[in-house]
Design a binder for these strands. Structure first.
Length: 893
RNA sequence: GGGCGCAUAGCUCAGUUGGUUCAGAGCACCUGCCUUACAAGCAGGGGGUCGGAGGUUCGAAUCCUUCUGCGCCCA
């Protein structure tokens, strides 16, 4: 076989992905096997592959491929999220740039048609990109949160919750995004510390006898027109005489009362607080307590409206108005002080506009009842979190649930199935008809109003759509048709096995899916949640498009191959830990591929003979194979445990070092035949089998190269692909052999060290003796071990001796004393220094062990195995010290 | 202001229920090698009193308290 010295991934990866897909390996249909199900966290339909996706989906693919190899019916459902606000923004921009259309000029229906057009043309690119990564999703199941069926499910759930009294419409303080002109949930508001200015403004007192005025502090001077009171703390001596009096709002002279409320912090600002219930959540609360009116002075796009009563500012943007206020207040001598001030400003996650608290009529889900079973499930480990400490975060949030505002003032999304009477616009709060269809709503309207003559034209549907998360929380149910066919295949696939997602959406999505699972199916949506960390750059910044610090995912795949990138991501990605991404890690992955490739070249390059070269080779190879099989069992056992506890990086690193170090550096070197010599068939076949097993074991992590090598190792029948084999199972193994080989490895290393020290050529054969002792005997009685040592250390002989050979350098390895013939003057001075250092270490070591063993309480309270082990350590140390002392004594001065 | 988490080699991090010669890996570094699989490699090596202090224990990187320094979430 003529193979290039470097592995090239490009052709291999596309070829195998196509092959797997053609063979239908990704497809899952219910059968008698145990299911293993994952639903993808649907990326935004507008999304393109970034580092976070690659990490997240690599993990899912590893779990899915492993389950498939374990003989389970693995089903990974892909899909995308319609991402209402993000996508609508994209579509609006596209319409403007490409079609020269403005949203305002389109009807809702026209807009939706364009939006679907856009989605079909540009949406879901990311699903194509996931294929490059090797994702073995069942593409035939690709779902989309705006698919017809999915849409219906959302509507069904809305109606269901409404009927159950878990959904209501109400006037509440909400976070308003004046740019997108929509309400945002609390989770969609991002707080940053920003500097602004604190205005100290004097409100003149109506009753001049009580004083000149009261000074309040605010960062938003333009909102004074919406003030309905000034509040002070009832305990505040400074203001006692003013409580109950009234003050006048600067510029407009409207009188407002001075009230007392515990909420007011006497230390903050001047201790007097302007109360603006329509534009501040805390003021809203105070307003409610004191039955104050609410005055909304802002338009939906953040401009002052006529209710502010100050004509010069009507129509101005809130920030422009703020600027003008400064001059106006100064002019009227109302501005007492202006100071710089740092505070947390909330901005819209999507548009980055400063969020305005605003009073608004919206739809809310009552969270208290939904939250209870979802919290319990996690605390009872019914749904297990990996890592477990995310439970804390989850609990804190779940214990402080606030009602969820699920209406959004957008078009791209599921339109809220609520209808109102056109003739009674003011009665919306009472005359709401919630139904699956307009006809259903009409039916209700007729009954409730008692007017049988009402027609569809008398009804008007709510203009708003659902919050995106109010569709994605149904994902694990809806993708299996759980609402429309509750007894269909969902009974097989649900609850899903594991959810893999970033911890940043634990509230947005994870918590709500758990709630939806219990609410609509009476069962958890998944058994486990694996939280991935955030991928950060070397400066610990979250990778984002706006920072431009994210490497181009596709370029990484080009440069290092999917296997290399998967390795790079996984090698440093313990669950829940953020990873500082470094391309260097992908380079390691690529190098590993090359290592595997070259191991293949080596093995396939050998000539084969029916019989071993000689007795020695036969023994050597037989033991090597036995050792490798034993070690493989040990490794598989540990890999299996790692998978059970989702310690995927551990599993990968275990396999990596087993393959690189044990298989390549030791095993292949042991059995490697001499120049132009053949390898015996038995060893060759065993090696191919071992190599094949290694490829299956590594396949979940690095699917492409393992498939390629699997096929190059042997001629495989059609359908005999690596990805559909059985994962190798650990069998019972005897650790003694592993220990013995480790002893030989240590010996070989010591001999190589001697070569380095004395500059003896690697190929120059050396003669080595081991001092006769019971332990030396026990070690080298193992058939084949001596031959292995000779091969690896390049020895002409390794024999036991009772006498010290002349002109040899001695050294200690394990508990044995060895002599190596070096044909040159031994540097006794250096030798003595080395031995003394070693002796000092061993004596210290011995001392610590003896202290332990002399301790009565240790011997009585520690487990017997631990004590026994300490005794063995003592015996070994004593043996070593004896040898060292003896050697030192005999050393020429 | 409330809560959560982190601190281990120059860098990035593992280290599971406290117990094996347990102080590890990769990268970086040093020395020697283009040895007939692989220089994307091979052989060998140096480097950390596990953030500080105290405590529990026969035994602590691991458990507890506290301090310091970071990070994050919520208000």
């Amino acid at each position: 076989m003529d193979l290039a010295t470097r592995y090239s991934h490009a052709e291999v990866e596309t070829r195998w992905y196509e092959h797997w897909e053609r063979c239908g390996y990704f497809r899952s249909v219910p059968d008698e096997r145990e299911p293993f199900t994952i639903v993808i966290p649907p990326p935004n339909v507008t999304g393109v592959l970034h580092m976070g996706h690659m990490l997240n989906n690599t993990i899912q693919d590893i779990l899915i491929r492993k389950a498939r190899l374990d003989g389970k019916n693995a089903c990974w459902v892909p899909g995308t999220d319609h991402a209402s606000i993000a996508t609508e923004a994209k579509v609006v921009r596209w319409l403007r740039d490409e079609k020269k259309l403005r949203k305002a000029d389109l009807t809702r229906e026209q807009f939706m048609e364009y939006a679907y057009q856009w989605k079909d043309k540009y949406g879901g690119i990311i699903l194509q990109q996931l294929r490059r990564l090797g994702a073995s999703c069942d593409w035939s199941r690709t779902a989309f949160t705006m698919d017809k069926g999915y849409y219906e499910d959302c509507i069904h759930v809305f109606v269901d919750l409404y009927r159950k009294g878990k959904l209501y419409r109400g006037l509440r303080m909400v976070n308003w995004d004046p740019e997108a002109k929509t309400v945002l949930s609390n989770e969609e508001v991002i707080y940053h510390t920003e500097t602004s200015q604190l205005y100290h403004i004097k409100y003149p007192i109506t009753d001049a006898s009580a004083g000149e005025g009261i000074v309040i502090a605010t960062q938003r001077p333009e909102t004074i027109f919406a003030d309905v009171a000034v509040a002070v703390n009832p305990k505040d001596a400074r203001y006692q005489h003013l409580i109950g009096k009234s003050v006048r709002i600067p510029l407009i002279e409207r009188p407002i009362p001075v009230i007392a409320d515990e909420y007011v912090d006497m230390e903050f600002g001047t201790g007097a607080l302007k109360i603006t219930p329509a534009h501040d959540p805390n003021d809203y609360e105070i307003g409610q307590r004191h039955q104050l009116p609410m005055l909304d002075i802002l338009t939906d796009d953040g401009r002052l409206n006529e209710r502010c009563e100050y004509a010069p500012l009507v129509g101005l943007d809130r920030f422009e108005a703020r600027k003008r206020m400064k001059g106006l207040l100064e002019e009227g001598s109302y501005l007492v002080k202006l100071e710089d001030y740092t505070t947390n400003i909330g901005r819209s996650e999507r548009t980055n506009a400063v969020v305005e608290p605003k009073l608004s009529l919206q739809w809310f889900v009552r969270m208290s009842e939904l939250g209870a079973p979802a919290l319990k499930a996690v605390l009872d480990r019914e749904v297990r979190f990996y890592p477990e400490n995310f439970q804390n975060l989850y609990r804190t949030w779940m214990e402080n649930l606030r009602d969820w505002c699920i209406s959004r003032q957008l078009w791209w999304g599921q339109r809220i199935p609520a209808w109102y009477l056109r003739s009674e616009p003011l009665n919306e709060e009472t005359h709401v008809f919630v139904a699956m269809t307009a006809e259903g709503a009409l039916e209700q309207a007729r009954q409730i109003t008692g007017n049988p003559h009402l027609t569809l034209d008398d009804l008007r549907q709510d203009e708003d759509v659902l919050d995106t998360w109010a569709s994605s929380w149904l994902w694990p149910i809806s993708v299996f048709d759980g609402f429309r066919k509750p007894d269909g295949e969902i009974r097989y696939y649900y609850p899903t096995s594991v959810l893999v997602t970033g911890w940043d959406i634990i509230f947005f999505w994870v918590a709500r899916m758990i709630m939806a699972g219990y609410e609509f199916r009476g069962e958890k949506p998944f058994h486990a949640v694996y939280f991935t960390g955030m991928v950060r750059d070397k400066l610990r910044r979250k990778m984002s498009k706006s920072l431009g610090n994210s490497p181009d995912a596709l370029k990484l795949l080009d440069d290092y191959g999917a296997d290399g990138v998967r390795y790079g991501l996984m090698s440093s990605a313990a669950a829940g830990n953020d990873i500082l991404f470094d391309e260097k890690l992908c380079e390691n992955g690529r190098n590993f591929c090359n290592k595997l490739w070259n191991a293949l070249r080596l093995v396939k390059g050998w000539q084969i003979a029916e019989m071993p070269e000689n007795e020695a080779a036969a023994r050597r190879n037989a033991l090597a194979v036995e050792w490798m099989r034993t070690k493989l069992s040990q490794v598989l056992k540990s890999v299996e445990e790692d998978f059970t506890s989702f310690r995927l990086s551990e599993a990968l690193l275990t396999l990596y070092s087993f393959i690189w170090d044990d298989f390549c550096s030791w095993y292949l070197e042991i059995i490697k035949p001499g120049f132009d010599k053949p390898l015996d068939r038995a060893t060759y076949e065993a090696t191919l089998d071992l190599f094949s097993d290694l490829m299956i074991a590594l396949h979940p992590f690095m699917p492409f190269i393992t498939e390629e090598i699997w096929h190059r190792l042997r001629e495989r029948a059609p359908g005999q692909d690596c990805m559909v084999q059985h994962y190798p199972k650990a069998s019972a193994f005897d650790p003694t052999l592993i220990e013995q080989v480790e002893a030989v490895k240590a010996l070989v290393t010591r001999i190589r060290e001697v070569r380095n020290d004395y500059q003896i050529k690697p190929r120059e054969a050396l003669t080595v003796w081991v001092e006769n002792s019971p332990s030396a005997q026990a070690l080298f009685d193992r058939k084949g071990l001596t031959e292995i040592a000779c091969k690896l250390a390049v020895l002409s002989q390794l024999e036991r001796t009772d006498t010290e050979p002349a002109g040899a350098k001695s050294f200690l390895s394990g508990t044995e004393k060895y002599f190596v013939e070096i044909h040159q003057q031994v540097d006794y001075q250096a030798e003595r220094a080395k031995l003394e250092q070693e002796l000092a270490y061993q004596q210290g070591f011995l001392k610590s062990i003896e202290a332990k063993l002399a301790n009565e309480r240790f011997v009585t309270s520690a487990p017997p195995a631990v004590v026994e082990n300490e005794r063995k350590k003592r015996a070994d140390a004593l043996a070593r010290i004896h040898i060292l002392e003896e050697t030192l004594a005999k050393l020429p001065a």
